[in-house]
Design a binder for these strands. Structure first.
Lengths: 163, 163
DNA sequence: TTGTTTGTGTTATATTGTAACTTTAAAACC
DNA sequence: GGTTTTAAAGTTACAATATAACACAAACAA
């Protein structure tokens, strides 16, 4: 799957990202015999409108527009499903959700998050993740879920770039 | 400062942890010419009653008991102050706060969190933190704040220990 | 001691997330 | 095809977390 190592790039063809994500999700659900319902698809599609994490409540208007019930439980259920399947990640620092560019590979979902433009980019932390896990094991701790998130400023937003 | 490498140990003298934390905080504030007010002290002390992260609202009763105003802003202000000074960390995955055993050293605050008993232990992630930061830099990203949190099961709570 | 800054009191409300129950629609079975 | 079973969505109500805005008071600085 392409487009997964874009980094912070404002000038890519984002339509491609969306298409790929939806296509990938369809394939994945079909493989796993899961129902990729209209609501789930719409939520995923809305999340993929940008590379900015969206809050659950920001997804409600899209549901309303499409004629669905737009109460919180609806969107949280869809988000739960998408998270369980690895199609979206939740960013704890922001209470927000973002699409995963490679839902098939088993991984945690680590992010660089720009405070200025709000874009978030998923990074590969398999190696450091293993270091952390082995450190945990030494303390007798059995790790299950890891969350690595970095707040900062992306290259598009660094001051000198702007001047 | 002792007691900072306790790991998951249910049987330590916790009074020591509390005393040390408060003493350290007093020293730190005095050094930095900051006011360690009764409310700030009480909030810190309450947080240190255990090694379990506490939600902001769980701190309110202690304020009420001591005769202070116990509306949310009071506790959030104290928490903001304590966080700024590195005396407590916020655990994003839990929306909860925990005391920092070594507020003097510059660091991020990474945690192993037990889903069963809720205890959280701070771990040193300076090395992996640097790896992540250099990875970020390669993408032109300027990191500011890092959050590393691991959910799992602590040695006191692993099934075989219980049987 | 008079301003200025910092901390606290207070009210109200914003934001995020769930519980519990009903209704509908899809899938599985006969 | 019709019936049962299960999964998803609709709906209402509310819980949990966090902040805005303004009033007041105590500490500090000149």
């Amino acid at each position: 799957m392409a487009n997964q190592n874009l980094g912070f790039h404002s000038d890519h063809d984002h339509t491609g990202c969306i298409e790929q994500a939806l296509e990938g999700a369809r394939a994945l659900c079909s493989e796993r015999n899961l129902r990729f319902t209209p609501i789930r698809e719409l939520v995923l599609k809305t999340i993929w409108q940008s590379h900015k994490p969206l809050g659950a409540y920001e997804l409600l208007p899209a549901l309303a527009e499409a004629g669905f019930n737009s109460a919180p439980p609806t969107v949280y259920r869809a988000l739960d499903f998408l998270q369980e399947q690895g199609l979206v990640h939740r960013i704890a620092l922001l209470n927000a959700f973002i699409g995963c560019p490679h839902p098939n590979e088993q991984h945690q979902g680590s992010f660089l998050i720009c405070k200025a433009c709000n874009n978030a980019v998923e990074i590969d932390t398999d190696e450091v993740g293993q270091v952390i896990n082995s450190q945990a094991s030494k303390l007798g701790f059995i790790p299950e879920k890891q969350s690595i998130e970095v707040l900062g400023t992306c290259p598009e937003c660094v001051p000198d770039k702007l001047s």
